[in-house]
Design a protein around this nucleic acid. Structure first.
Lengths: 146, 146
DNA sequence: CTAGAACCTCAAGTTAAGTTAAGGTAAAGG
DNA sequence: CCTTTACCTTAACTTAACTTGAGGTTCTAG
């Protein structure tokens, strides 16, 4: 058993997320904590990796629901090891590749298509870049200006 | 002037969107309509392309707000022509390319990184795929919505 | 010992992109 | 003419991923 000695505030700071997000992740079953005598959350160090993985997955366009699903394959009562995390990431790798392929097709069709006469609902490849490969759509807009 | 002879229902059907979505786009200023004697919407044919472009842009991960911005460069009182649409699409092409690059970097780092010991908030490239590459150019594109 | 920072729970608010519902009018077809 | 669609408006609901606020408790530093 690892020491359970990180407070929410410490975890939040080290992960770059708000305390409220940690509460939220916990409510979704993505992370766990124990409580001290005063009912405050205490985390073991492996929560840091969990949160890191959550954030990385989100950047890939993976939803919390999917992350939760993937996490359910992790060992429940020991800290996940290298192999556990890698199994997880290989599924996401495939998914991300599909999304990239999809976006590339979209991009390559774009310039020719929006301007030309073909952008009509029925037949244009930009309008219908067949989604068989990338069912999950464009994903969230992760890049954005600020 | 083009004939204003398409009803919402017809446009919805030909575009594959719900009538409610057309109302919604109109409320956002993305499309326009005139009214017949009974106060029903009537559209000219070029609304079809507008909607097609909206949907294509959404597949690229562009928000309605950004689409609205882009549309504001279109001529207000004549139907946009090929050149108008192409100007529009070239901006999005850059944006999409940046996003693809970003996702590729993420993917290429993924397999090695989630499993290895480095996935920590401070230094891991998956956690912080620093955006120097994606940020270049006049194109906006930053990471981390919000 | 005490002030203030950090924490707790629960409820409600936020944004995006629409959808659904309610109550009423217009148009189209037999 | 009458009925069935199609349409109108406004308002409220939906999902995701959190954040904010209220009201109250616990920790920690001086």
């Amino acid at each position: 058993m690892q020491a359970q000695d990180l407070s929410v505030g410490q975890v939040a700071k080290r992960c770059g997320v708000r305390v409220s997000a940690l509460h939220f992740y916990e409510s979704k079953g993505l992370i766990y904590s124990s409580r001290n005598s005063g009912n405050q959350r205490r985390y073991s160090a492996d929560v840091l990796r969990r949160v890191a993985v959550i954030k990385a997955a989100q950047k890939m366009g993976i939803s919390l629901a999917e992350i939760e699903q993937a996490f359910s394959a992790l060992p429940k009562h020991r800290a996940p090891d290298k192999k556990d995390w890698q199994a997880l990431s290989s599924g996401w790798h495939r998914q991300l590749s599909n999304r990239i392929d999809y976006l590339q097709r979209l991009r390559d069709l774009l310039t020719g298509c929006i301007g030309c006469g073909c952008l009509s609902m029925g037949k244009c490849p930009v309008y219908n870049p067949d989604d068989k490969l990338a069912r999950q759509g464009p994903g969230p807009v992760i890049l954005d200006n600020k």
